[in-house]
Design a protein around this nucleic acid. Structure first.
Lengths: 199, 199
DNA sequence: TATTTTTGCTAACACTGTTAACTAAAATGA
DNA sequence: TCATTTTAGTTAACAGTGTTAGCAAAAATA
């Protein structure tokens, strides 16, 4: 009796329909405005049907998070394979990581819980300028006194800030707590940065 | 006639009340679950009163974003002043940045649009392990072939990943677009990292 | 064919941000 | 002091959100 199988196939096809509809909505309107009702509308089923396939809305988004990490890992694996030297691998993987993030923005934002109200917000916050100005001036001073005084201060500022923000947000995602031992990471990263800066 | 002044004072006191109540709610329940109704409840006024003082909910949160950047800038300015050497300033400011983020977590999350569903999510995503494993193995290989083979691979992995994530998310916050010229930042940062890694 | 299981629906609950329309109080002018 | 105007604050609603209980119809089983 292939009845059970047919049913299973049908059930699975709805599940896939939900994910496809959801992803389409995420792509067009961003994951912030995804709603169960919109999905139900798109798949032409009533709302509760969705809850027969996913525990809740978060579970649907989690699916994409997983997909995103899979795709990213796949990409990195491929890129790694194109080089033999680990140092070159790291550089190439970094490049690929960057490209992945911007080629798959919705994935990346989901994967790392990026709310991104900031896109519009940043410009509304002149107070941000104060912080960046402070960092930039210090970077400039450091460069001026280094063995490479013609280094691009703006590029270095971006690197500096990004390292810090990256360390913090990865740490927040991973555990939420500060984790005293991990403060070494900051110091290590800062040491590496300034070393590369002043030569 | 001090009537206008009294009125203004009263209006201002409500505004402050809104912000204080909102901040209390953000502190206790996180900014995700802040609601206009909860604020109205706390200040013992009806809902529309809040809209006489703030255009919308976002405007209230924006206030905290500004506060956050002010506080961070203030902190960094103070720390900078405690050192004369720019390199030492950068290191100390990095330390202070880290501390600020975890001492003022709610501020930091607001400032950078960190949704942080991930805190619970990360553990639900075994796919993440694949990516980290890939990075870690490459880091290990690079360390093995470097002049400093006893370096802490886990620490270096964290640095590596954080730099990348930081670069990406700062770039996403600032413009949203990839910005071809900024890809240099990745390459510069990667170069600095691997240089510090292999010595 | 009668019974049970499954499938999917309607309708509701408890929230959310936001706003229109109204009342009551306070300030103003005569 | 009284009538008028302005302002402050209210209730009630609209249009959304995630989620679930209860029911009807269709399909599978006996």
């Amino acid at each position: 009796m292939g009845i059970a199988e047919r049913k299973l196939r049908h059930k699975e096809s709805i599940r896939i329909g939900i994910l496809e509809a959801a992803w389409q909505l995420v792509i067009t309107d961003g994951w912030q405005s995804l709603s169960i009702r919109k999905i139900a509308d798109a798949i032409e089923y009533s709302i509760p049907v969705i809850y027969n396939h996913f525990e809740n809305k978060e579970a649907i988004l989690l699916e994409f998070t997983k997909e995103g990490f899979e795709k990213l890992a796949e990409t990195l694996r491929e890129v790694k394979a194109t080089h033999a030297d680990p140092a070159k691998q790291l550089a190439a993987m970094g490049d690929a990581y960057w490209d992945f993030a911007f080629d798959n923005k919705e994935y990346y934002q989901l994967m790392f819980g990026l709310g991104i109200p900031a896109c519009d917000t940043v410009k509304k916050v002149p107070e941000l300028q104060e912080m960046t100005a402070l960092m930039i001036s210090t970077i400039k001073e450091a460069i001026a006194g280094s063995k490479n005084p013609e280094a691009d201060y703006f590029l270095k500022f971006h690197t500096y800030w990004s390292i810090l923000h990256g360390l913090v947000s990865i740490q927040m995602i991973e555990s939420g707590k500060p984790d005293v031992t991990k403060k070494m990471i900051v110091q290590d990263a800062m040491a590496g940065f300034t070393k590369a800066l002043v030569d």
